[in-house]
């Protein structure tokens, strides 16, 4: 099972480690009409209702929309809020939160301190995903993990599966920096606890692809998707294209300039190596139209 590290973390980590602490709360006596600004300005879709420091309910964007839709006069929040609030304790393992989200269908839970019953935070699915990834030391900005994937990851953790996507922009002709993207990718895959043989194959294929972008194009993009059972590496550029793909796949066939050869690359093994590492490989290329290479590596089985 390739994603054990994520699964371990779901048991190891506590709700308090990923919840957001700067909780925006509202009072039960606040008029519904004031929620409009809170939801808009704070970009939240729900908030706990607190009387003193006691949690008395939760009011969501859905409740608010329903109130608008019913075209009643203004009303107090306490009349529209959900009262029997299900909460999580701050010291519960994340896995409890995960299962509670799944069974209830709610988008957020208030977190209370077990001892005092005081509201200490709010937790959403996004918080869990973000917390897990941070724990795995994956740098959000560097690797541009797609936020829209967040909900996916969440469902997949529950279903014993995980989907992640990474994207790297490679600058052409910058030989010194060649391999930086592949290096980052490799470290991330290692941290995710994938099989070392699989990690090595993905790393080598990506490195060769990155090298090709640098040697032959002005740059391009490497997208990597981790799905249950497979890793897909998609490399695209708008460079010169490959005139004869079949020929380019022959070991030793090369159109690389001499300077590249003296640097240890361009010996006509790049595409061959990618193919060697891949379980599936597809090349779409035409002169002047750029190149697209799709490599799939299956993670579920040994070679």
């Amino acid at each position: 099972m390739p994603f054990t590290r994520v699964q371990e973390l779901v048991y190891e980590m506590k709700v308090s480690q990923v919840m957001s602490r700067s909780v925006i709360t509202v009072r039960p006596q606040m008029p519904m009409s004031e929620l409009r600004e809170i939801f808009r300005d704070k970009r939240i879709s729900g908030t706990p209702v607190v009387d003193g420091d006691r949690l008395v309910g939760i009011i969501s964007l859905e409740d608010f929309i329903k109130w608008l839709y019913d075209r009643e006069g203004d009303s107090l929040i306490e009349n529209k809020m959900t009262r029997n609030v299900e909460t999580l304790y701050d010291d519960e393992p994340l896995v409890h939160a995960v299962s509670k989200f799944e069974t209830s269908g709610f988008g957020r839970f208030a977190v209370v301190e077990r001892r005092s019953g005081k509201l200490v935070g709010v937790i959403t699915k996004g918080d869990i995903v973000e917390g897990l990834l941070k724990k795995l030391e994956i740098d959000y900005h560097e690797e541009e993990i797609h936020r829209y994937r967040a909900s996916h990851i969440f469902e997949d953790i529950v279903a014993d599966r995980t989907t992640l996507a990474f994207e790297y922009d490679v600058v052409g002709r910058d030989f010194e920096r060649a391999g930086e993207s592949s290096s980052r990718l490799k470290r991330t895959l290692k941290r995710l606890g994938l099989d070392p043989g699989v990690v090595r194959r993905v790393a080598i294929a990506t490195y060769e692809a990155e090298m090709n972008l640098i040697v032959f194009t002005e740059g391009g993009r490497i997208s990597v998707r981790l799905e249950p059972g497979r890793i897909t590496v998609h490399v695209t550029d708008s460079g010169p294209g490959i005139p004869d793909v079949e020929k380019a796949l022959q070991p030793g066939y090369s159109t690389a300039p001499q300077w590249v050869r003296e640097l240890g690359f361009g010996a006509g093994m790049g595409l061959v190596n990618m193919q060697k590492c891949a379980d599936e490989m597809e090349i779409i290329s035409a002169p002047g139209k750029g190149t697209q290479i799709k490599i799939a590596i299956l993670t579920g089985r040994k070679r």
Binding site: F175, G179, R200, A203, I204, Y207, G264, F265
Partner: peptide, 11 residues
């Protein structure tokens, strides 16, 4: 060059 170290890392 640095690519030797990169290669070692990848392989």
């Amino acid at each position: 060059n640095q690519q030797v170290v990169r290669t070692a890392e990848m392989a």
